[in-house]
Design a protein around this nucleic acid. Structure first.
Lengths: 214, 214
DNA sequence: GTTGAAATTAGTACGAA
DNA sequence: TTCGTACTAATTTCAAC
């Protein structure tokens, strides 16, 4: 029903970008993932044809990806509006230290939470909820979240529009990006970028005052 | 490759929580969606059995849900760490008014962006990116985002851990919530909830100063 | 890693309740 | 509408190459 999902870390391997311990993923594996994230119901036979390998090979790789955990599961994307959950909100939560375990346990009991991530910055966690109406957000925050001792403070914003959601970003996309963006060729490095535009918010700096910069 | 996804609004219907114009979704439809979001590759035959309807009926409903758009697509969930994208970050963007169109167009050209939503509050949009290493986040923000005229300012936080992701929240979950949480047993109703804990950030208030409340 | 043939399963059509 | 059945097409499995 609810799923703990993998940490961002690389299971011990210190090298960022390094492929995980299990399978070595080659280009064909990545192409399979790319097709599967667009169409999770494609038959393995059709997959083999699109990738340009034999069916037996496709079955082997498909199973390997599943077994290795590179593919975690297959899922259907639902239109929430049509399913009666027209309101999406983000709730940024400040958690009392040493009460994370309780916070997580409570989260698991809230089915309207679609996503929760621990973040650096001003807050400690961001949760995304889907509910039927604005009142439900209010109820959720004031009745449920605020009653959790682990929750020190919350800040809620509403999502007005979801501009894009990609099924899942893959390294292949990065290569495309590198091509498209043709990155920071040291020579043509742009130094006219207005530095005041950007801000990186680390964990320590987090609770510090937030200046407004517009 | 990239997909515009539906607005939060209810396509004209003013009633929040109301099912969209197309299909009337009954309990069986919702049960089908519930199964499909857990296992997007289940066969329609197996689906029929689990729901307790005939195979023919299952095919009809399955197709109807697809045609109606209640099911938008099927996708595979990838383990990003294993795929070489170990870093996830959230970038909050302040967008110059009347340059939204440009902003969206540029977003479409950034494959490392997995999700983008327009929000109320201090910022105008939140984008989630997946990249190989921390340096790539820096490059993304300073070289790509900052060079978009539509982008007035950004604020970046890193995701340290993704605590939970549910495939998709459905109204049925709400019912469960009501049951599970069955919470405020009037006797143990807590009226000592510190109101200062919560903050709702509307669009207008947005750019106002942000006090620190810890 | 590939191909081809057998076994199984999926998808369609249609009449009856 | 929904169900049950029969029919056709496709997929998966498994063998040998």
């Amino acid at each position: 029903m609810m799923s703990e999902i993998s940490r961002n870390g690389h299971s011990g391997s210190g090298q960022p970008g390094r492929i995980g311990i299990g399978l070595e993923l080659d280009d064909i594996h990545l192409k399979i993932l790319e097709i599967l994230r667009e169409n999770g119901r494609i038959s393995v036979a059709a997959l083999a044809e699109r990738v340009g390998i034999s069916r037996a090979n496709a079955y082997t790789r498909f199973e390997a990806l599943r077994a290795d955990g590179a593919i975690k599961r297959f899922t259907a994307e639902i239109d929430h509006g049509r399913a009666g959950l027209g309101i999406t909100a983000l709730i940024f939560v400040t958690v009392r230290q040493q009460m994370w375990k309780q916070f997580r346990a409570e989260l698991a009991r809230m089915p309207e939470v679609e996503y929760c991530a621990i973040t650096t910055g001003q807050h400690d966690a961001m949760i995304q909820v889907r509910v039927a109406d604005v009142a439900a957000v209010h109820t959720m925050v004031t009745d449920r979240l605020a009653n959790i001792p682990a929750v020190k403070a919350t800040e809620t914003v509403f999502i007005l529009d979801e501009v894009l959601r990609r099924p899942y970003v893959l390294p292949g996309d990065g290569r495309q990006a590198a091509r498209q963006a043709r990155r920071p060729a040291p020579s043509e490095e742009r130094d006219d970028v207005p530095l005041g535009k950007m801000r990186f918010v680390g964990a320590a700096e987090g609770r510090a005052a937030l200046r407004k910069d517009d």
